[in-house]
Structures are given as C-alpha cells and as structure tokens.
Amino acid sequence: MACSFTGIAKNGPNPYSEMFAFKAAMKAAEAEPVWRTSRIIERQRWNPYSFEGGSTCAIAGENFAILASDTRLTQNDINILTRDGEKMHILNDSIVLATTGFYGDVLQLKKVLQSRLHKYRFDYRSDMSVDLCAELLSRNLYYRRFFPYYTGAVLAGIDEHGKGAVFSYDPIGCIERIAYSASGNAEPMIIPFLDCQIGHVTLSDEAEKPPLTLERATSLMKDAFRSAAEREITTGDKIHLIIAEAGKPIVQKFLPLRED
C-alpha cells in the first residue's frame, strides 16, 4: 500500500508538503482501500454482465394472458447483434417466461426452469401451474442474491382457475402478481401508457372505461411497442406476440416494427 503519510509535524519546515502527502495518501486509500478483497478488485476490473436491451410486456385478462416483446438483441445499446432474438420462452402449455437484461442469464434462467419443470412432470405426471412456477422463479432469483441474474423477468400464463396471470420480478426475486407489467429499456414508456389505458389511473370518474378484451389488449400491445420503438433505440425489428387463452393452445405471432 502506497501510504507515505506519517502524521502532521507541528514545526515542519514546509507545512504544504505535509498537506500534499496527506492528499496523496487519501487518494491512494480511496483508489485501493485495504478492505477490498482480491475478489472485489477483480469484479471491478472485469464486468461479467452485458445488456442486450429490448423490452417485454405482459397483460393479464379475465381468461387470457398476452405477452409481447421485441426481437432485437443489441451490443452496447447501438450495435444490433440479431433482429430475430428470442426474449420469450414458452415453458409449457400454460406458462410463458419473458425476460430482458443480460441475455446469458436469461438463457441460464430458462434452462433452470425447464429442468425443474421436466422433473415436476416426471414426479407428478402433469405440468406445473403458473402459480407454482412463479414462486419457483422467485426462489431461483433470490438464490443468486449476491451474484444476481441480471434479468427483468415477467412470468405469465393461465392459472389453475383458468384466469390470466402476470407475475413481475426484480432481478433478485421480489415477486408481485399484477394486472400488467413491462420490463426492459422501454419499461418507463410502456408502464405509464398501460396505467392510463388499463389501470385507468389518470382518468376521471366520468370517463369511458372500456373492458379489457383480448382484442383490446392485443391492440394496446401493438401501440405500446410501436411507440416504444419510435423513441427507444434498443427496441425494434419485430413484435413477438404470445397469446395464452384458457382451454386453447398458445398462439404466437410476429409483426414488423421499425428496423432503424
């Protein structure tokens, strides 16, 4: 440790030299505090995370859940890796995982869940329900509390009662079941839009509040992503839509989006 400060001498020949020494010592201590372990130093040197951008969104209805994401993967926010990335993963007939963030973690998280669902199917001879999977995902995220999966996860599907379900997470497993959710770079743009259109939080009591049908949810999704793609550079290329309706097979659609 480069620490040359030895205390302030009362009657030194040059008071400034002591001050400079003190400043230098402070700087050195700030740059490399003694309490830093080699592990911490290393983490600061090499960042294990990268961000591939994009956005996902999910809306729960009475008997359906609809999810959407864009399909762009980016590098350093400006360079497009691929225009056909998969941010949503169909885990079984009633569960869909939509994630943004570090794509390596996204893939790992998907693999962990698929493996657990595989085991569940063998043990119980049926597919896991979305409520259970939601809890499982939360535990898995929290398990990596101190080296988190850097993902904004949204889990959606049809629950045991045939109702649409959307679960929202933070990277370390905080979980909430809500009516609609978004995650990713355009989250700050999509959420207020849905607050207005579905949550009706900004509307007066007299205003017309249309019921949330599948058609309306679908067109809201399209609007949300089209406007997000106008302003947010990592969101674009295609809208990937997944619709889960109670008692029906999952439907997937791709719609074009801005490519610039």
């Binding site: 693999k111 698929q114 493996s115 595989h118 085991k119 063998f122």
Partner: peptide, 17 residues
C-alpha cells in the same frame, strides 16, 4: 430406474439443449 433415466435426459438437455 425410471427416475435415473429422467435425470439423464434432463442433464443432457442441460448440456446440449
């Protein structure tokens, strides 16, 4: 044995997707 086979299938998927 069936459970063993299941874990074999699962770990193969883990490695190779």
């Amino acid at each position: 044995l069936a459970r063993y086979l299941q874990t074999e299938c699962s770990s193969w998927r883990w490695d190779y997707k």
